[in-house]
Simulated assay, not measured.
Amino acid sequence: MFDRLIKKLQNPKTRYITLETTPRHDALFTPVIDTIEALGITEHIDGFSTTDNPLAKLKFNSIIAAMQLQERFEKPVLATMTMRDRNKIALQSDLLGANAIDVRAILALTGDPAKISDQPAAKGVFESDSTMLLDIVKCFNAGIDYAGREFGIKPRPVYPFAVSNAFAKNPKTLLKKFTKKLEHGALGVITQPVFEIENALMLLELFEEAKEISGKKEGVLILGLFPVTRLRTAQFLASHVPGIHVPKRWIDALYEAHKKGEKEEQKRGLALSREIFEAVQTTHPKIHLMTANRFSLAKALLNP
């Protein structure tokens, strides 16, 4: 299952699409899985991801959610693990448990700051950034733990992924981050959402340079896409989310549509989202689709 995913990822001619899922503040993840199944979109994607308490808000466990998705759809899942909530002992313990239940694609994140959590006085761990988790995965794949102690029963192969911003005022900042993630072993680097093909092309150029610098030719850039159908969403992303660039033409188009009513606003937003989705598919068909669990939007793009 995972070998097939990585082969599709590393083959420049094949389409590769993963769909992000966000576990809820609930004791069960199955309602999210049921929604995905009811929409019939799994045949159009190659795998999923599960988020790990994004914005430091308490949610259902990402590893168990990944296991449940895999069992239902028989497609691989990238289970997100953040450095915010675990020290190196807990990270490795969770990786061992995940390995035993065949959750073996890991998306390494540093994590949002604990100070914005919905849990009173929550404290972040942050022993390091996400590159430590990538290094731990590298050790596991060599049959040892992070302290160099050999496992009696060795873990099955783990497939490491990482994330990156999609925009920076100084592109060299992105180049440094790409290079760092590749040097620490990331097979795929998922970007924050892109909203124009010029942004995507710039990222692809920087990533190729990072591959040359790092010597890691097997790494692949995966372009994040986030369909936006509301003016307020576009404005929020543009104003409050670092590492994303929402073009002025999107804001202007959604503003004009908003004045005509909600249906026109959604129609215009979906048209803009479909435009960038199709442009990326043509240029670099390696996509990570994020919808904040609005899976009907994913269906509209994947099966129009």
Score class of each variant (00 low, 15 high):
20 E>S: 10
83 M>H: 01
188 G>H: 03
26 D>T: 15
254 L>W: 03
120 P>L: 13
215 G>H: 04
48 F>C: 06
211 K>F: 13
270 L>V: 10
302 L>W: 03
45 I>N: 02
290 M>V: 15
150 E>W: 01
14 T>R: 09
90 A>T: 02
281 Q>K: 12
73 F>T: 05
196 E>W: 01
86 R>V: 03
100 A>N: 14
143 G>R: 08
236 F>N: 10
42 T>Y: 03
220 V>L: 07
243 G>R: 03
266 Q>E: 15
96 L>K: 07
229 T>A: 07
170 N>W: 01
158 V>W: 01
137 V>S: 02
81 M>N: 05
128 S>H: 12
62 S>G: 10
181 K>S: 03
144 I>V: 14
68 Q>A: 14
146 Y>Q: 06
270 L>E: 01
280 V>Q: 01
221 L>E: 03
30 T>F: 10
23 P>S: 10
116 I>W: 02
13 K>T: 15
247 P>H: 05
169 K>H: 10
114 A>V: 06
269 G>T: 03
53 N>W: 05
176 K>G: 00
91 L>V: 14
144 I>R: 08
82 T>Y: 00
26 D>R: 12
246 V>M: 09
133 L>S: 09
168 A>P: 01
142 A>P: 00
14 T>F: 05
244 I>A: 05
229 T>H: 02
237 L>Y: 08
87 N>T: 14
247 P>T: 12
57 K>P: 02
35 T>L: 13
69 L>S: 10
262 E>Y: 12
116 I>E: 09
96 L>W: 04
239 S>K: 12
154 K>M: 12
83 M>P: 03
284 H>K: 05
4 R>A: 15
152 G>M: 11
241 V>A: 09
221 L>S: 07
109 L>A: 14
137 V>D: 01
280 V>R: 03
66 A>E: 02
266 Q>N: 11
273 S>I: 06
201 L>S: 06
52 D>G: 11
124 G>T: 13
198 E>C: 09
35 T>P: 00
111 G>T: 09
28 L>A: 15
6 I>W: 00
179 T>Y: 00
50 T>M: 02
277 F>H: 08
135 D>T: 12
1 M>H: 10
74 E>K: 15
168 A>W: 03
1 M>Y: 06
96 L>A: 14
66 A>G: 04
295 F>Y: 13
140 F>D: 01
58 L>E: 08
130 S>W: 00
68 Q>Y: 10
165 N>G: 06
88 K>F: 14
60 F>R: 05
286 K>C: 10
225 L>Q: 11
93 S>H: 05
165 N>W: 06
258 H>R: 08
283 T>K: 11
142 A>T: 08
35 T>H: 12
227 P>I: 13
231 L>K: 11
51 T>H: 01
247 P>S: 09
171 P>M: 08
237 L>M: 15
97 G>C: 07
243 G>V: 08
304 P>S: 13
279 A>M: 10
159 Y>Q: 01
275 E>N: 14
76 P>H: 09
48 F>G: 02
301 L>Q: 04
111 G>D: 06
194 V>Q: 00
207 F>D: 04
159 Y>C: 06
296 S>K: 10
25 H>F: 12
56 A>M: 08
136 I>K: 04
137 V>L: 13
33 I>R: 07
172 K>R: 14
